[in-house]
């Protein structure tokens, strides 16, 4: 187990393995996303309350789920980097941030598009939306702090510490926003009920979530490969790479 861990942690080894593994994530991701799209848009029946607007759930929920999952992944990678000074962990945390920010943006944007027909407004100070917005700012802070350092090693470590502080704070933020929201429940807007999902509605959602996860894995690998190259400039193993990369 440990030798495996060490081996994967070595940049040249990771670079080689990830190059070979990447298509095994990307291709199933594309297949599942296509399947989920067809299933979500055509095969699943319209919701009896929301009609066809509920179909946005198939792109909204996976994005919101990934927004959180990627942040946790980033914080775990950051913690591993801080504790074991592992270059690959810092590279992963750095690679997670822009992808996570993109998922968070998607969760907010699709939520807003969903909100317009359902609530009549583009934005509602709903507890969930507000905490996702804060999550978006946490991603921005991580990226801004990391790029503010001239020395990338320092930037990595500082941003990693920030990610850890953020992940401790997220449950508190979530709790506070929920508490705030229950005090100010706007009565005029009809709440969005979590639709009681039947099997034929749920299946495309699960397919989409798995598709998003695999896509995240594939994109993450490509980004980590880039980060590894940037961090290992001039190392012998890079000069020995075949021109095909």
């Amino acid at each position: 187990m440990w030798t495996w861990f060490h081996k994967l942690g070595s940049p040249p080894h990771f670079y080689r393995i990830s190059g070979r593994l990447m298509p095994w994530f990307a291709v199933p991701a594309l297949v599942l996303l296509a399947l989920g799209t067809v299933g979500g848009l055509w095969w699943s029946p319209p919701d009896y309350q929301q009609g066809d607007a509920f179909r946005i759930i198939y792109v909204h929920v996976p994005a919101a789920y990934m927004a959180m999952m990627v942040y946790v992944t980033m914080a775990v990678a950051a913690a591993i980097g801080i504790v074991w000074r592992m270059k690959l962990a810092f590279a992963s945390a750095a690679a997670c941030a822009p992808i996570g920010a993109a998922f968070t943006f998607l969760a907010l944007a699709t939520g807003s598009i969903w909100g317009r027909p359902m609530w009549g407004v583009w934005w509602d100070w709903d507890g969930r939306m507000t905490s996702v917005l804060v999550l978006f700012f946490l991603y921005l802070g991580f990226m801004a702090l990391r790029s503010a350092f001239e020395d990338p090693v320092k930037g990595d470590r500082a941003a990693a510490l920030l990610a850890i502080v953020g992940v401790v704070n997220i449950p508190i933020i979530k709790f506070s926003v929920d508490w705030w929201n229950t005090l100010h429940q706007p009565a005029t807007l009809s709440r969005l009920q979590a639709p009681a999902m039947t099997g034929d509605m749920l299946a495309p959602l699960l397919v989409m979530i798995v598709g998003y996860m695999l896509l995240f894995g594939a994109i993450l690998m490509v980004r980590v490969r880039g980060e590894v190259l940037l961090r290992e400039q001039g190392a012998r193993w890079i000069r020995e790479l075949s021109p095909g990369g």
């Binding site: 009609g51 994005a63 943006f105 699709t110 598009i113």
Partner: peptide, 19 residues
């Protein structure tokens, strides 16, 4: 899409574009 077509398609289109 029962009158919601514009919303559904724009959500999907935006998602595809960002991904």
């Amino acid at each position: 899409m029962g009158g919601y077509g514009a919303f559904v398609w724009s959500a999907w289109g935006l998602t595809a574009a960002v991904l």
